[in-house]
């Protein structure tokens, strides 16, 4: 039965990683911006949801949605003011500036919420266990798996089946040509950036039980989010889903089976994968 525990835990973990990282893969794939500060939006989402639940008595799910909207709005402002000048600069400038944003987020969150992690604010109906036929399993993790799957389906529909998605895919594949056929790539990017930040905020809010919220969140999990994006392939939606689930399952398996190794296993695998496929497992088609 251990294998089911590992799989379910790993998938729940992977779904959180997916919800948070999927916006980043579009950012890095579409505009080639290395955005290290993406996790800060997830952290903000977690904090905002917690404040709304505790101090304003807003129920869990609406609070997560409101936090997502707030993160999306902030993401839009950040895109227009801070990120836009970065597109023309090199990778190093992008890495440094967004690293600076992480520092600012750490300082700001410590100032506002204090240095300690916040307690989970889970509603009653998510606590406890649920019978899944052959055994019982925590409701919260099943909830994460369900939400993650639903979001993945919705995103698949938007990206693969809608006009917006077709434009987005075109812009990822070849931004120059997309512009030439009249797609407003800048607007598209602002919109996806907003969407990605909103998803990150949502993921941070509902995933707080797995990735606890504290001021160093953006720095601590930064590498995990980047791994998901880079292993999956920049700009690849399917890739980031596959990579998020793989990372979740590998990390969980490592913790259950060889706890003395810590994250060592994951890093060895990441290292090997990147050497083998530097463009990720399921890279988006790019013209370059």
């Amino acid at each position: 039965m251990l294998i089911f525990t590992i799989l379910l835990d790993g998938i729940a973990y992977g779904m959180v990683l997916f919800i948070i990282s999927v916006g980043l893969t579009v950012t890095m794939g579409l505009m080639r911006v290395v955005n290290l500060a993406h996790g800060a939006f997830a952290m903000l989402g977690g904090y905002l949801a917690s404040v709304m639940i505790r101090h304003y008595g807003i129920p869990y799910v609406p609070a997560a949605f409101l936090a997502a909207i707030a993160c999306g709005a902030l993401g839009g402002v950040a895109e227009l003011t801070i990120y836009r000048p970065l597109y023309r600069k090199g990778e190093l400038a992008q890495v440094l500036l967004t690293f600076g944003l992480i520092f600012i987020s750490i300082a700001a969150m410590t100032l506002i919420f204090g240095p300690r992690p916040i307690d989970e604010s889970m509603p009653k109906w998510l606590e406890g266990l649920v019978d899944v036929g052959f055994r019982t399993y925590p409701t919260y993790r099943l909830f994460l798996i369900g939400v993650g799957a639903a979001l993945a389906l919705a995103l698949w529909f938007i990206i693969e089946r809608s006009l917006f998605g077709a434009r987005l895919r075109a812009a990822v594949d070849d931004p120059g040509m997309a512009r030439a056929v009249g797609i407003n790539v800048n607007l598209l990017f602002t919109l996806t950036f907003v969407g990605g930040c909103a998803l990150a905020g949502f993921g941070g809010a509902i995933g707080a039980g797995i990735l606890p919220i504290d001021p160093f969140y953006a720095l601590r999990y930064l590498v995990l989010f980047l791994v998901v994006v880079v292993i999956g392939g920049l700009g690849s939606f399917r890739g980031s889903l596959a990579a998020a689930l793989a990372v979740g399952i590998i990390e969980t398996a490592g913790k259950y089976l060889v706890p003395q190794l810590g994250s060592f296993l994951l890093w060895i695998i990441v290292f090997g994968l990147l050497l083998w496929r530097p463009n990720g497992l399921l890279p988006a088609k790019t013209a370059s």
């Binding site: 290395v34 590498v223 980047l226 880079v230 810590g262 994250s263 890093w267 290292f271 990147l274 530097p278």
Partner: peptide, 28 residues
């Protein structure tokens, strides 16, 4: 020798991975 075959994002992720591997070794 291993990582300098790659470029851009893959390369800096590889440097991150190496640093993380060293960190885990020292930690364990």
């Amino acid at each position: 020798m291993l990582i300098l075959h790659t470029q851009g994002v893959a390369m800096f992720m590889l440097t991150l991975a190496i640093a993380s591997i060293f960190y885990e070794v020292a930690n364990q």
